[in-house]
Design a protein around this nucleic acid. Structure first.
Lengths: 135, 135, 135, 135
DNA sequence: GTGGTCTAGACCACC
DNA sequence: GTGGTCTAGACCACG
């Protein structure tokens, strides 16, 4: 299974599922149209309540990552146009970047080192994507 | 001040303080015996309820990161551990950067746009720092 | 109370709450910054489970209509910039308009009559708004 | 065909069919004795499962709106009620239009933009109709 | 006091 | 079989 839960982290279970499904879709591990486990199946698999999965899937649906069809199941959506306008999208990321910058500051990692680190992680990410594409 | 709060992140304020103090201690930015601002001073500075600061400091005290001395204030404890090596510090940031990259992918923000955004936020951050230093 | 539930309509209770709060905010019955009843209070008032209210409020928060603050309550947000880009906003309305058009077609209401009806309802809506503003 | 489905609305497909047939009958667009398409023809036309059509027709039959005659097809029943007066028909639409107006307000779409959008959707609707008529 | 999360289990509607 | 809604009640975290 592509979802690994950490019950001790304090991060809400439904959010762990949301971010891991998003990461899997982003990296290419899941592709457009792919079926995802049914709510009931994933709940049983992760030993978590149905409602928790339903909530995670619901979030993912409103974010446009997947599609829930009554009676037939759950499918990954094509990563079409994001429903948010560009400026808003940047704004959302900005908040997360700010947190990273503060953290870097406290770890005494300079601006250039941070930029390098970003480049390194981007390279890594794109490499993982290409690997998926080759399969 | 070394603490930067993000009220929109959903991360509890007191935890933001805790993790930032710990990160500063881990990197060597703060050293054993260094004084920290008093509860009331920090509360005023961050425009936050004193309870919130007290809770953060309490957490840090039970974790052995700092020491509250009645009447004289709050000091970083010697913890024996040497400051983290550079590679280890980078590793800590890598996970957060990876999350940002995934998010950027879903928001359809390209690599270059992400780098630009980082530059922009860094500039902003440095400007805010200078402003504080002037006060 | 500004919410009236119809349990026999088949429309989900949480959606009834969502749309009625939105309507109240749109018409000016509720204003930016106004506090809304707490989750518990509204649940008791409407004789509905806390979770149902929490879900409705959650939807309203993600839509940017209100703001939930841990420990302090629930407040109406300023109807600031919608987070959606204009084209997308139109698209959302288009779906609802299409349904109206089909319905008009079946009721044998011509295009001009439909336009007139829209004008009439718009006038009515603006009149209600002005009335609120005067109070 | 007189039925237009909206798969994104969340309204069950079979209910969309039911309400549209009922509206057509109420307005006089369909008259007693008029034949309706067979289950399989309509299913193919709307690209929907035959069960869905069967269910809609079943619902309409139990409500006495139509009559299924084994082997010969499906016909609108005489229901004695005279077609609704014009004013009543407008009234039915008014509620839906009001919802659209509220939604437009929240999406910050002005009155004129809304009127334009209606014109656009009407044009689109008429074009689709002509296309169907040509087939 | 506030909201947030999760569980357990019910019932419904859709396909 | 599928997802959607609602209830009842528990526990946690925040201010």
């Amino acid at each position: 299974m592509f979802v690994q839960l950490n019950f001790k982290s304090g991060v809400p279970v439904y959010l762990q599922i949301v971010s891991q499904v998003k990461a899997a879709a982003a990296s290419g591990a899941l592709r457009a149209g792919d079926p995802l486990p049914s709510v009931r199946a994933l709940a049983e698999d992760l030993r978590v309540n149905r409602n928790t999965i339903a909530r995670a899937y619901g979030e993912l649906e409103t974010e446009g990552v997947l599609e829930l069809r009554q009676g037939s199941g759950c499918f990954l959506k094509a990563n079409g146009a994001s429903p948010l306008r560009r400026a808003v999208r940047s704004e959302r990321l900005a908040g997360e970047l700010d947190a990273v910058i503060v953290q870097a500051h406290h770890l005494q990692i300079g601006d250039d080192a941070l930029r390098e680190l970003l480049d390194e992680r981007l390279t890594e990410f794109r490499a993982r994507q290409r690997q998926r594409d080759d399969n």
